[in-house]
Design a binder for these strands. Structure first.
Lengths: 189, 189
DNA sequence: GTCTATAATTCGATAGAC
DNA sequence: GTCTATCGAATTATAGAC
């Protein structure tokens, strides 16, 4: 009855491989992840992983596509952007699917040079796009905001430093949001 | 003529192993580092590395000892602590020896769970020591300051994001120093 | 103390039957 | 499309000669 084509069996297999790859890359980093472990998690023969994605690098490239989904932030009044940005980033990290991808990319970018280059490029591009959408005066603030946001993500979601994990989400949004807001609007803050 | 005992040959070998280990762990991460690569760099037989340090984990433990050298900061007036802390951290990272150790620990902490636990514990302990030395009112600010400082270090020294590497050091000290200062003194900043 | 030789695994990737 | 079998290389770690 549906107009959608019934998913081929191989598509299902591909998706299961991708889901497993996301999770294991995010937990073990690039070198720590094995094709065999991904195949086992996906209940699929390791040779099929190679057939579908060609190589370990190819599989990672299929998983690692940075998307901050910053479009909704374009409509936020400038005066509220600081908190909105922090809240958005935290929601992204705490979303099961997005958080796993972000963690995978961060981990891989730290142990693998070619992954680092691709990810830094994607990150810089998206950040530049966001801040040029906000307005030309915001651009110089971008690198400072990036350090604050990246540090929050690393400390809370990658290293899981107890004192930082323990902070209530609302308090994080308020205080770090205020810092971001100041970078954004106070020319010398 | 010196009262110091002449270094035994094995001590020289140990030091060369440690120096090589620091560099390679910092560049390749834990998984990406091999005993063989360390031995080759140190011009020493791989079996000797095992003999001296027992295992790859043992060698990493000998290298990975976090020391932020925060003692000098205790004498800084509270009003200047923000900038002083940022300047101190940047000097640490840009010092060839300390920077390599910090990078090694950060990289390893991301690909190896036991390394992560040890490093997070050491980090938390030193941060807590520093802020309790500053004063009891500073303690609640510690986690926020940690996110800002960690983010700066990751972005500038690990990911080497071009827009952030390009920032003049003085500007970083001034603006991020101001953020740290505000976390420190403004109760609700 | 030093080194050779190698054990025991594990990895990514491939060949080829079905 | 799927899977078995395996290759070739690399890894940590050990045994034991010198």
């Amino acid at each position: 009855m549906s107009d959608l084509p019934r998913p081929r069996k191989s598509d299902v297999a591909r998706d299961r491989i991708l889901a497993a790859a996301r999770r294991i890359f995010s937990e073990e980093g690039y070198e720590g992840t094995t094709i065999r472990a991904i195949a086992a998690t996906a209940s699929i023969n390791p040779a099929m992983v190679m057939r579908y994605y060609g190589s370990k690098e190819g599989l990672f490239a299929a998983v690692a596509n940075l998307d901050f989904r910053v479009a909704p932030l374009a409509g936020v009044p400038v005066a509220e952007l600081g908190e909105a940005l922090v809240r958005h980033v935290m929601a992204l990290w705490e979303n099961p699917r997005d958080g796993v991808v972000l963690a995978a990319m961060m981990r891989a970018s730290i142990s693998n040079e070619s992954a680092r280059e691709r990810i830094v490029a994607q990150f810089s591009e998206q950040i530049a796009g966001l801040f040029s959408a906000i307005g030309p005066t915001a651009a110089p603030a971008a690198p400072f905001i990036a350090t604050q946001i990246l540090g929050l993500a690393m400390a809370r979601y990658i290293w899981r430093i107890p004192a930082i994990v323990a902070l209530p989400k609302d308090l994080v949004v308020t205080r770090i949001g205020k810092t971001v807001q100041r970078y954004l609007t106070d020319i010398s803050a």
